[in-house]
Write a protein that binds this DNA or RNA. Structure first.
Lengths: 288, 288
DNA sequence: ATGCCTTTGTGAACGCGTGCACAAAGATGG
DNA sequence: CCATCTTTGTGCACGCGTTCACAAAGGCAT
């Protein structure tokens, strides 16, 4: 899952809880698959299994939309597909611009999921003049200078930012000023936007770090368990390879006085991070 | 944000709430930026602003890690960077494999954020024999046949799935069988995994659909407001361009009897979706 | 040394989301 | 037409996460 949720915190939009909204696309996907297999009806139990959620939760979610089921039978697949699509606004055609056509931007432009559900890539925009005119995914890349006119000419309200972190906030401001009110941000930065603008964030690095946390915890428990069992089975070495020297769990220098700022921190690969702008930028060059 | 959270629901891992864990990478990024600017200390207020969260929340988050602040002063940047890194398991080196080297997989392989924080791309794996040996991001792509040996030889515990939806579950099972216990899934499918395996999902399509929902709601409110103001200002046409005929809000055919399965559903671009497997698959070809 | 001022750490209240469990509703078979 | 069986829709309780508000803690100036 992406890490989004830079949302209006409380405001329950039109009575439908945010958590439910986030699951509707999941249901829609499962329903679409059923529809393609010409399945006429589906029970909450079956659909919940397909979507990977609890059936009670699914029924409650649907109850926010209305009473669309038939007791003793289940839900009509086609009808539900329509209702959810309408609720999500997918019966409209949403023009989308992608800003930053590096590796990721190009991949997004080619992503089938965009076009498949009412989303249409209206334009690809990049700051590099050398990119201008180049076709990516069948669409000619346009220069950032034309951003404002592209937005207003096409009535774009959804923008995707796939630029390096450093450029994201500026691009964001231009998008918002031009009329964009929803932004999907792939750059590893916190965007600040005025009220009324929705931002969702997808951050690969954060997802990996969360996984690493759980992985470490699992390794720790495993080790504790192994220790408790006094090596009945093979020692099962912790899976992570290079473990740091674990220099004094508490760097005394930094603990008390404000560190002079130099690299006293024993963080892994702190050096490798330095020569690349703040954090993991999206490289702008395509691979071989 | 990605849509993940296919997690152990309750189990508060080592006392640290899941929500807090998800924010730690955010704090870490902000702290790293401060560290590079040689800022010695930072208050919860400042850091919270940089991370885009409430300062009380930040303090409570940190309180789960321990008492690392100094009252009246704030937090020592270097020290906190180290503590969070350690808590997240980033003082270790995590070898990662990426399966599915299409557009997205290649973009991920080139993604700077991977290497920057203890994550090392150990191998790129693709099912297409024609890809085998080709260098992507400086690493030669290997064939799926070698998946198991790659995992065990490198002690890989984290896998990234960037395959088309159809192949994802199978790849997932092979990864898990080979010893992977954490998976970052970019394929638009619900993966089923045994207990003890963590899955996080990143789904671009879902993020867009959530944005579309809010966008539609905003447009609706705006329209209602305009109607209330009786067109004092310019009519401000709803931003979405092509609006469907809105055929009878209730497709009567499907409402009562189980539809015959054929396309009665007035869903936008239902046709465009058909010739591409269930939902938005990740195209396997690179762009021009 | 003493008092003031800043900032942390946390107790407590609140609200949202989840899951249980069951009554109501409707289909289905006799 | 009635009985039975399936499945929905939801009232209720519980737990997690968020936020407020404040007391304790420490630096700093005098």
């Amino acid at each position: 899952m992406a890490t989004g949720r830079t949302h209006r915190p409380a405001t329950r939009s039109r009575g439908i809880p945010e958590a439910t909204v986030a699951r509707l696309p999941l249901y829609l996907r499962a329903l679409t698959a059923l529809s393609e297999r010409s399945v006429p009806t589906v029970s909450s139990e079956e659909l919940a299994a397909a979507a990977g959620v609890n059936s009670a939760k699914l029924r409650k979610d649907f109850s926010y939309l209305g009473s669309y089921g038939t007791r003793g039978v289940g839900y009509d697949v086609e009808y539900l597909v329509y209702q959810i699509s309408r609720e999500l606004g997918l019966t409209q055609d949403w023009p989308v611009v992608i800003v930053g056509i590096g590796n990721l931007g190009a991949a997004l432009a080619n992503y089938g999921g965009f076009a498949s559900r009412g989303f249409r890539v209206a334009a690809l925009i990049d700051a590099d003049p050398a990119m201008a005119g180049k076709p990516v995914a069948g669409i000619a890349v346009q220069h950032t200078d034309e951003l404002e006119s592209i937005i207003s000419d096409n009535g774009v309200s959804i923008g995707v930012i796939a630029t390096p972190a450093g450029a994201a906030q500026q691009v964001c401001e231009r998008l918002v000023a031009a009329g964009v009110t929803s932004i999907l941000n792939f750059a590893p930065t916190v965007l600040s936007v005025p009220d009324g603008v929705d931002v969702r964030k997808v951050d690969l690095s954060i997802e990996l770090q969360i996984l690493a946390f759980h992985e470490q915890r699992k390794a720790g428990e495993e080790a504790a368990q192994d220790a408790a069992q006094a090596g009945a089975t093979a020692p099962a070495p912790a899976r992570a390879s290079r473990v740091l020297p674990d220099a004094a769990a508490t760097p005394a220098t930094a603990a008390t006085g404000p560190a002079t700022g130099a690299a006293t921190a024993p963080v892994a690969s702190a050096d490798a991070r330095d020569n690349q702008g703040p954090d993991g930028d999206v490289p702008a060059v395509m691979p071989a």
